[in-house]
Simulated assay, not measured.
Amino acid sequence: MASFIGSARATRASSPALIDRSMRSRDASSWRSDTTRLLTLYRNGTKVGEHPESFGNFTLPAAMGTYRLTYDVDASALLPVSTRVSTAWTFQSAGPSDTESIPVPLLSVDYALPLGEANHPNGSVAEFAVRQTRGVQQQEITSFSLWTSVDDGTTWQPARVERLEDSRYAAEVPEQDADRGVSLRVAVKASGGSEFEQTIIRAYLAE
């Protein structure tokens, strides 16, 4: 995702595009021309810079700071699901004393939604697994929250979340009228100050 290099450090941040299986039949040029992307980095609440791509280079001081990296994708002109995705990572980091690259303590979430091959529900319980960057001190996950929306993010309802083992969580997702979307929003916090937030508009469509 990101690495910090040197005392007057530069970081290259990149984010994987979140796309549906229907994108497999489309080429990369369609993805680039028919979607909008914005990657933005903040340090201690001040914007460092932004790039209209899923990657970018930023020049940063070596001193410890609190960072927030956001990535917004609008694929509504191309996809029927995951039409808009907004992701934010919060973490603390300082640059190394030499020219080595170091990983940063990012969180992410894997979704196991109760969906069939056509992205339609075949159950009501979703599972979520919190992941952490390898090569950094692992943090305790202190909170995991989930909200759902059946009106494309206009209003949100909190979901009841059950904590499982190994940083996994389960929650029921709402029923919806046929061909209507269900949107999801997750928020995760960890003991070392790292946070993860993600909103997926029309994460899936009801049958």
Rank of each mutant, 00 (worst) to 15 (best):
P61R: 08
I102S: 02
V109D: 09
W156D: 11
V125P: 08
Y111P: 02
I19M: 14
E197K: 15
G123I: 03
S30D: 12
S97K: 07
N44S: 10
A190S: 15
T148G: 09
N119V: 03
Y204T: 06
L79T: 05
P52E: 12
R160M: 11
T142V: 06
L106S: 03
P114S: 11
D177F: 13
S33M: 11
S93W: 02
S183L: 09
S143I: 00
E162T: 13
S3F: 11
R12F: 02
R168C: 04
S167R: 12
A13R: 05
A75D: 07
T70C: 07
W89N: 12
A170D: 03
A10Y: 14
Q132H: 09
V109H: 04
A126Q: 11
A13I: 00
L106Q: 06
T87S: 15
P158Y: 10
S194R: 07
S54N: 15
R185L: 13
M23V: 02
G49E: 06
A126I: 00
D152Q: 14
S167I: 00
H51F: 10
A63S: 15
S33Y: 06
E195F: 04
M23T: 03
D34E: 14
G123S: 08
Q139D: 09
T11N: 04
A178S: 14
T87F: 11
S145G: 07
F128I: 02
L38W: 04
E172T: 06
G49A: 05
T70G: 06
R9C: 09
A112W: 04
D166W: 10
A75Y: 06
A112N: 10
W31F: 13
S82W: 10
S76H: 06
T66G: 07
V136S: 05
M1F: 08
D27M: 07
A112M: 08
R68I: 00
L69M: 08
L113A: 13
A112D: 13
R202F: 10
A170T: 00
I19V: 11
S108P: 00
S29G: 03
A112P: 01
T11C: 08
P52W: 08
G123C: 07
Y71W: 12
S15P: 00
E53P: 00
D166C: 07
D98L: 08
T36K: 14
N44I: 01
P52F: 08
P174D: 12
I19N: 08
P158C: 13
R180T: 00
D152L: 11
D179W: 12
S86I: 03
W147K: 09
A129T: 12
T59R: 14
R9I: 00
S97N: 02
